[in-house]
Structure formats: structure tokens, C-alpha cells
Design a protein around this nucleic acid. Structure first.
Length: 494
RNA sequence: GUCCCCUUCGUCUAACGGUUAGGACACCGGCUUUUCAAGCCGGCAAUACGGGUUCGAUUCCCGUAGGGGAUGCCA
């Protein structure tokens, strides 16, 4: 109660779509905030003028919304610490840059990155060996000389060479870097924009962020940022670095592994809840043994930063598919209906009273169909093909199924005979029940002296076009006697 | 090159220094049977390697190997 407010943030840069790695980082922040009753801030880090785009910004918001990760402060949500776009906070950064400059903690650097690389190479070092401190101790005359050449400086923070910098990471525990391995990084670019490493510190501090939870790729930025906090006279927040997500081959997750943006997953028929559930399982576990399929509320209840582990995790579609199927199966009938109804509208599928089925409206009918199919759905994208034959006679018949079960002349006679039996048994003006079909089929099988299955298998193909379906008598009930009879005759006539 | 990190079944992971190293996905088998799923039951499968410390290491330390990250006026 007396603890200072827990505030976390997700701070993507709008230079691409919302990547699953970023989404997972956002998710852990969100889960933590929701778990402890803290606040979740969304901030857009668009200090890279060249790469930041409006499209990307919009795509990231869409991705967050699709996942259902709502933010308490940020674009569209308001808040007392705005603006939440770094490009709109330039005067704030400028103010703190000026303060540091006045304190003599910054120095101008006139080098281009090519010059730095060139010098590293000349010294026999790797080109990426880092900044060599070339402008660190420039005299006033030297600076004037550079200025006279027309060079605009960037500004670097002077960091110590001795001792080391450490912090206690939520995930890694103690992390320590020798200061000798740190270079004086740029905090203010030539274009007047702050660098990420500066803006992130100013914003996290000014926005009252208590826990900075970010990707593992930021670990080695942290010591420099701690020096920025110190230069500004501020106390750093707690840091926690989340493990990376790798591709199935344990290489950095990239396009060649398939989908990497959350919107692609949306388009692939995954449920947001399933995606959230699966992502949470990458680098975190509820511990112990048992079920791993969690509703959002359960996830919040169970989540703990302490259980986030430090090893990178490989993305696994098999498990995602399983989690997705489980979520689809556990959906409330009303929720499932809401998801599927648009698919009907799209295809113009609706109930026809002539079918004589036990439902009054299209929605009722769909409800019964979905109820019958129940746990058979594993992916939203496959739903239309799974329910199509209930609504339309224009459904695909698998060639192999047809060849195996419908080709025989004998079979055709049976189906014709069965059609007549059903026609006789089913009322002409009302829906017939499962029992009527069941009896009709079994009685006819007995009459023919064949196994019920010998009749049932061809029926299934004739009625659904496949060899895989729910109980065939239930299917008959739901497609109705007129269509059942017609499809049996149609198959026999092939 | 330098700095940092990671390593338990194929994959995600659990395990106060003492467990027959547990669960989940995938895979295999069985049950059921009106097919396919689902479900239930069962099975296969791991502590990267080498040294220490310890009565006892998956667990602590060192090294090796493999993988990842950083080393940007990208974030």
C-alpha cells in the first residue's frame, strides 16, 4: 500500500510491425501491471527520423489492440506524463541535454562513423571495436577548427574508465560490466534528436517508470544508461531483461521462419487469447505440473516476474496450434457464434426453411452446428470448410473419399434405397430427429444384411464430402431430410 | 577483436544441494467406434562436455564447445 506506484511501459519504435518478440515483452509488462494493480504505459520511440513511419505506428497499435493489451497511458489513452511520442518531447530532452552540457558532462564529437571505423581498422582492431575517445579531450582551438570545417558536432556523455557498473536484474540477478568496456556514447545526434540511450532514460524517469522490463538485447545498453541516470542525478528503475524468442532452428526469429508479426498470426486464424497464452509460455511458466492453457484472467493471477527465466526460447507452431485449439474449444457458445457469424455473412449462407431443420433462425442453426462440431475446431481459418456443407450443397467432395466409398454399383443401389427409406420415415413438414435417421439406417442395413458401417461410410461422404465428420445421424438431423435424401440420390447418380 | 549472456527429453519447461529428474506439445500404442478429431489411459525421450567443491551436484565454482546479444549519430 505504501509502496510507490508500480509503473511499467512498452516502448516500441515504429520501424516495422509488432514483432512477436516485442509482443511478448509488451505482454510481460502488461501482465505484471495487471497482476499488481500497477499502470501500463505505451510510449513510441520514434527518434529515428529516417526509419520511423506512420504505417508502422498504426500497425503497432493495431497489434496491441488485437492482442488485447490495453494501456493506461499513451497514444489515444492520454495520461499525465505525455506526450507519449518521443518526437514530440524534443524540448524536454533539449532541456536535460543543456543541463548536462552546463555541468560539463558532455562533450562535442566531430567524428563521422566512417572516421571512427577507419581509425579502428588502422589500429588493427575490428571495425566495430567502438568509439575510441578521439574528441574526448579536444582543446578549444581544435573544436573551433572542426567548426570552421563546417562540421556539426554530436554530443557524447563522458563515462568513467575505472571500476565497474552493476545492477540487480530481475531476471539475471547481479549484472556487472567493467567501465573500461564502455564507450562514451552519443546522447544528442547531429540532427538535434536525442539517441535512444538518452531519451529512454529521460522518459522512464519523467514518466515514473518503476520497472524497466525489456528484451535481452538491451542488457549491454543498461550500464551506459545507468551512467546517464547518474549524470542527471536520478535513481534508475529496476531492470528486468526478458529472454529472446528464437526460431525453431534456434536462430534469431526472422521472416524465413514464417510469420513474425502478430498481425500475421491474426490472419492465420489464431485467437488473441491463444496467442497471449502461448507467448506467455515462452520464457515463463506457472511452475510445477499441470495444465498450460490459461484464460487471460488466470494468466494475470498466475504471472510472476520471478518465474521469468533467462534462457532464450524457440518458437514452436505445434504448441501454438494446440493452445489455439484448446482456446477455441473452451470458447463459450455465444463467443464462438460471434466469431463465426461474419463468415456466414461473407458467404451469403443462411437458413432456408425448406431444409426442415430444427432451428428457427440462421443464428439458431449456426449455434446448433457449432455445438455439434464442438471440439473439432482447431483454427478459425478452417471453420468455413468445416461447416460449409450445412449451409450449401456446393461443397467440395474429396476425390479419394468418393473413390473409396461411393464408386461401387452396389453402394449406389444402397444409397438410393436408403434415400427412399428416409423419405418414408421422415415427416414431410417438420424436422426429423436423430432417432429417425438412426433407425432408418440400421433397419435398412439389417434388411440388406450388411453392417451399419457399410452404409454409414458412404453416407458420410455423400452428405459431407469427406470421411471425417461428427456423428452422421446428428449431421442428417441438422442438414434436414430433404437435403439428406437429395444428397444420397445425387451421390448414387454419379 | 572486446564485453555480456544462455545451455534439463526434438520443443516449451519443473525440480530448498538429497526426486524412480516431474509436466506440456509433438511422436508411438491402447480404449471408444459410425469415420476423423476430441477425450481418457499408457509409452518413448533430457541434465552439452571436462574438471573441481561436497557425504551427496541438474543445482555452486572454473574451463571447453555450441548458440545468442552488444560493441551505431538503430532502437
Amino acid at each position: 500500500m505504501s509502496d510507490p506506484k508500480i509503473r511499467v511501459r512498452f516502448a516500441p519504435s515504429p520501424t516495422g510491425f509488432l514483432h512477436v518478440g516485442g509482443a511478448r515483452t509488451a505482454l510481460f509488462n502488461w501482465l505484471y501491471a495487471r497482476k499488481v494493480g500497477g499502470e501500463f504505459v505505451l510510449r513510441i520511440e520514434d527518434t529515428d527520423q529516417e526509419r520511423s513511419t506512420e504505417e508502422s505506428y498504426a500497425a503497432i497499435l493495431r497489434g496491441m489492440e488485437w492482442l488485447g493489451l490495453d494501456w493506461d497511458e499513451g497514444p489515444g489513452a492520454g495520461g499525465d506524463c505525455g506526450p507519449y511520442l518521443q518526437s514530440e518531447r524534443l524540448d524536454i530532452y533539449r532541456e536535460h541535454i543543456d543541463a548536462l552540457r552546463t555541468d560539463g558532462k558532455l562533450y562535442p564529437c566531430y567524428c563521422t562513423s566512417e572516421e571512427i571505423k577507419g581509425r579502428n581498422l588502422a589500429k588493427g582492431e575490428d571495425a566495430f571495436a567502438g568509439y575510441d575517445g578521439h574528441c574526448r579531450e579536444l582543446t578549444t582551438e581544435q573544436r573551433s577548427a572542426y567548426e570552421a570545417e563546417g562540421r556539426d558536432p554530436s554530443w557524447r556523455l563522458r563515462t568513467p574508465d575505472q571500476d565497474s557498473t552493476f545492477w540487480y536484474d530481475i531476471v539475471y540477478d547481479k549484472k556487472e560490466f567493467p567501465n573500461s568496456s564502455l564507450t562514451d556514447r552519443v546522447v544528442l545526434k547531429k540532427d538535434g534528436f536525442p539517441t535512444y540511450n538518452f531519451a529512454v532514460v529521460v522518459d522512464d524517469h519523467l514518466m515514473g517508470i518503476s520497472h524497466c522490463l525489456r528484451g535481452d538485447d538491451h542488457v549491454s545498453n543498461t550500464p551506459f544508461q545507468i551512467h546517464v541516470y547518474q549524470a542527471l542525478g536520478w535513481t534508475p528503475p529496476k531492470f528486468g531483461h526478458m529472454p529472446m524468442i528464437l526460431g525453431p532452428d534456434r536462430k534469431r526469429l526472422s521472416k524465413r521462419h514464417g510469420a513474425t508479426s502478430v498481425e500475421e498470426f491474426a490472419g492465420m486464424g489464431y485467437l488473441p487469447d491463444a496467442m497471449v497464452n502461448y507467448l506467455a509460455l515462452l520464457g515463463w511458466s506457472a511452475g510445477g505440473s499441470g495444465d498450460e492453457v490459461f484464460a487471460r484472467t488466470e494468466l494475470i493471477k498466475k504471472f510472476s516476474l520471478k518465474k521469468v527465466n533467462s534462457s532464450p526460447a524457440a518458437f514452436d507452431y505445434d504448441k501454438l496450434n494446440h493452445i489455439n485449439a484448446q482456446h477455441l474449444k473452451r470458447l463459450e457458445p455465444a463467443g464462438r457464434l460471434r466469431l463465426v457469424e461474419p463468415m456466414l455473412a461473407e458467404r451469403g449462407w443462411e437458413l432456408d426453411p425448406a431444409w426442415l431443420v430444427p432451428a428457427a433462425t440462421t443464428s439458431d442453426y449456426l449455434g446448433r452446428v457449432l455445438n455439434l462440431l464442438g471440439g473439432r475446431f482447431s483454427n478459425l481459418l478452417r471453420v468455413p470448410e468445416q461447416i460449409g456443407f450445412f449451409f450449401s450443397d456446393d461443397f467440395a467432395v474429396e476425390a479419394e473419399a468418393s473413390a473409396e466409398h461411393l464408386a461401387g454399383e452396389e453402394t449406389k443401389t444402397w444409397l438410393t434405397g436408403l434415400a427412399a427409406k428416409i423419405e418414408a420415415a421422415a415427416p414431410v413438414d417438420q424436422a426429423a430427429s436423430v432417432e429417425i435417421y438412426d433407425e432408418a439406417v440400421r433397419a435398412f442395413a439389417e434388411e440388406l444384411d450388411i453392417k451399419a458401417g457399410d452404409l454409414i461410410h458412404p453416407c458420410r461422404v455423400a452428405l459431407t464430402g469427406t470421411t471425417r465428420s461428427a456423428g452422421i445421424f446428428e449431421v442428417m438431423e441438422l442438414i434436414g431430410a430433404p437435403r439428406t435424401v437429395a444428397r444420397l440420390r445425387g451421390a448414387a447418380a454419379q
